[in-house]
Design a protein around this nucleic acid. Sequence first.
RNA 1: GCCGGUGUGGCGGAAUGGCAGACGCGACAGACUCAAAAUCUGUUGUCAGCGAUGGCGUAUCGGUUCAAGUCCGAUCACCGGCACCA
Length: 801
Amino acid sequence: MKYDYQNIEKKWQKIWDDNKTFATKNDYSLPKFYGLVEFPYPSGQGLHVGHPRSYTALDIIARKKRLQGYNVLYPMGWDAFGLPTENFAIKNHIHPSVVTENNVKNFKRQLKSLGFSFDWDREINTTDPSYYKWTQWIFLQLYKKGLAYKKEMSVNWCTSCKCVLANEEVVNGVCERCGSEVVHKDKSQWMLKITEYADKLLEGLDEVDFIDRVKTQQRNWIGRSYGTELYFDTTLGDKFQIFTTRADTLFGATYTVISPEHPLIDKWADKITNYDEVLKYKQEAAKKSDFERTEMAKDKTGVKLEGVMAINPVNGKEIPIFISDYVLISYGTGAIMAVPAHDTRDYDFAKKFDIPMIEVVSGGNIEEGPYTDCDKGILINSDFLNGLNVDEAKVKMQEWVIEKGIGKRKTNFKLRDWVFSRQRYWGEPIPMVYCEKCGYVPIPESELPLVLPNVDSYEPTDNGESPLAKITDWVNTTCPECGGHALRETDTMPQWAGSSWYFLRYCDPHNDKEIASKEALEYWCPVDWYNGGMEHTTLHLLYSRFWHQFLYDIGVVPNKEPYSKRTSHGMILGENGEKMSKSRGNVINPDDIIRDYGADTMRLYEMFLGDFEKAAPWSQASIKGSKRYLEKVFSLADNLIEGDEYRKELETEFHKTIKKVTEDIENLKMNTAIAALMSLLNSISATGNINRAELRTYITLLNPFAPHMTEEMWTLCGFKGMLNETEWPTFDEAKCVDSTVEIAVQVNGKIRARINVPADVSNADAISLAKAEANVSAEIDGKTIIKELYVPKRLVNIVVK
RNA sequence: GCCGGUGUGGCGGAAUGGCAGACGCGACAGACUCAAAAUCUGUUGUCAGCGAUGGCGUAUCGGUUCAAGUCCGAUCACCGGCACCA
């Protein structure tokens, strides 16, 4: 029979839909599996071939788990707030909610056409007021615990989006989304104190099963370092504090640097004799955009402050103070002690400004470059530290500093607080009002959701205000505290807000009393397996861990960590090996592939493409192979013969394949699972016609990969019920071994023959069988045998001289 | 610069330290066809040989081992992240 994929796929998609085949069961006594993929942003372009790579992989796992008897939650939804929708709406004069609705419709059609086993009854949408009610509710809880605060500060401002960006959204000094220049702007912003969770976010990583590169990237982003904070006196009487991780090198400090934004500069305005020069440098530093600052990072600049000197506390020596933009006001204390002999940046600076160096750790050659190695060196020129190694010296110096009362131990982080305000329309309104008398006041929880009002124009403004600011009858309100006049906050939340907790909502998506019921959360949490893109590692993945840990601390969720396991898929590149993009003209549209090859072929192809974790180029030629394979499998049904067990000659291979497919799916090695199924098919073809028992197992194993076709074959062959209601095949470890094996025979490590031996052959027998081979005896005759070894089921190696 | 990763046929890629190149694509040859497509069969790392077979081969150089794609050391190239974080 012809493999009519179009009708088969349509037919089964309808049956699954009508019967709610993949609806999650509310039976909390069953073992559960919660598989999660990142819900998409429903863009106007529709689904990208990259989406199904992740969705298919977890769909395969979800389908297999169902067959293994698990109650599976595999949900889907829409992360629908965001700028592209808003920009499209502005351009075409359509309300963003309408744009969203249309895009969602299209995405949903596309996802359904791929046959994913999502539970559509649990579909969520972040722009739905009944959803963002709880996003706003979480914000209010953060506010109540002092973790949301408003602050006037210098922020990243995207000149094209006309909107503030979080640090995580600035990439190489430009906007992550649109690539436009990012400048600094002083604005009052809502901030979330993610830094308060820095330690917990780090420690939590030890408890979860995330792939290493995710853990490493999050650890680097959080950037914890242990060091010492200590005061330097100055000749003007004022003290200033510095942070160092290398307290051991204090005797080698030959100058200090404060950042251009350091408050002492203003304070010393009339005492610094070259103040004009200093001020000029300060202004130039402020003018630089992030991009320029990154570009100019290689060349050190700075100005020496004349008329003031710092005093090194450990030896009383007077050393100069510089300002330089290589010291950042936002990290540590905004001031450093500089040890040019043992720090690369200080070394470059000292070379340029001709500042002396003192070598205090032996082991390098400071004529050639700084010696920064902490492992081997021994302290010199350092009085009471002499002879100690670096670690001992750090401890001793720290103790000395503490004893003298001039400093303390200190841990610093690279992580900054999360800038949470956006000056745009299409986002969750921040549920706060400003009252002249009471200051910022949260709106009562009973008033949630605070619904986004309709506006005529959502054009961004150049003055940095949200479009909402123009709707005066919405902005003007009464203060919940004193009843007086108040103004609503007009900034909205960033796109990352709704996605920071969405996986909780899937547990109980229609609950209007709470985020989700306690029972649902207890049962489903944590997410057992979360797959998503590496690009979200320091954004969504980190943010959502932060919110979740907070929700745990206030007793809303039962686990500290939201996700037990995190994996990541590689990108699918264009045929030319470049990233797929419109401008490169190498975009593949999933709709075309489904039309021309079918959803099952597309799924299978994307899984067979290569190593799941690595990027791989699309190949229009290779996809034919997947189609050919499915056609071959489908035609097995034509010549089906009776039989209740595997034929003897195939029994071992069947057991082996069941084992391999079962294990490979769990390890995301879909490509080798498919290869094993292909090999088995080749063996089946070579041994005659398939029997019922064999076909049953075969299509069940293939079902998670090609669900429509296998379901159709199930019916066609008259098996009872639906394939998705059957059980996953089991294997017998004892039957996975062949009775005879081919082994290689090596002489001095070179292969000279291959022989068949019984799998359980003894050492001695294997070796004597090997020696009996003509090719082998020719090699060893007349030589002295030094060593003979048999590696069971692999090879014999005879070493001769 | 720092951190992480990768490097295997014409291509995508397989290989608990134990037969390198599974599986697939492509290519070549043959069958079917008036012909093409599709399908089926066979060959396909490379060099030498009619052949059995032999030499060489996993970025480069060196080491450990009976045995190295895999482990160790150095180098090169590419990809990703961070980027003056003291």
